[in-house]
């Protein structure tokens, strides 16, 4: 049968930063071809096709929370595969190889993670799941 693609509306202007991305304008309608968990979605808009940040899109119909997993306050263990320095107040700075707990996997690719007493957003593309169960203390 025909493949029905999900439609989303662009909520803010976005200028592409590579040839694999497309530029979007507020109010544009796009169809989603693929959703990467790292927060980049492959979409088509008119005749253009390319990657765009999921956070610049909202679903045309239906509640947006429906496809997002609930937070898991117990945390899931992941290891950082790349260092990242916080650029905003609500982000965490972490070095490569640090073990952290993922609390909330947000569709925009900026997951909420916990390291000791600190909690903040971190790029999911720099995280690798350890597969270990968290030790209960």
């Amino acid at each position: 049968g025909p493949i029905i693609l999900e439609s989303y509306r662009v909520i803010a202007d976005y200028s592409h930063t590579s040839k694999y991305e497309i530029t979007l304008h507020i109010g544009d309608l796009v169809e989603i071809v693929e959703k990467s968990p790292n927060g980049w979605w492959f979409c088509q808009c008119d005749t253009k096709r390319g990657w765009v940040p999921a956070s610049y899109l909202e679903p045309l119909d239906g509640p947006e929370e429906s496809e997002e997993a609930d937070p898991n306050y117990a945390g899931e263990l992941y290891i950082t595969t790349k260092a990242y320095k916080a650029a905003q107040d609500d982000e965490l700075t972490l070095e490569t190889g640090e073990t952290i707990e993922v609390i909330h996997k947000l569709l925009d690719g900026w997951w909420v993670v916990r390291k000791g007493e600190e909690t903040g957003h971190f790029p999911s593309m720099f995280l690798y799941r350890t597969g270990e169960k968290k030790e209960m203390v």
């Binding site: 909520i11 803010a12 976005y14 930063t17 590579s18 694999y20 991305e21 071809v33 693929e34 990467s36 790292n38 927060g39 980049w40 492959f42 990657w51 940040p53 999921a54 956070s55 610049y56 909202e58 990242y84 905003q88 925009d108 690719g109 900026w110 957003h121 790029p123 593309m125 720099f126």
Partner: peptide, 22 residues
């Protein structure tokens, strides 16, 4: 075929979206 997604983190949500979440 689809190219792999960009290897840099996507931009954070625009201000409007963050207000909605808050």
């Amino acid at each position: 075929s689809i190219k792999l997604p960009p290897q840099n983190p996507p931009p954070r949500p625009p201000a409007e979206m963050r207000r909605k979440r808050a």
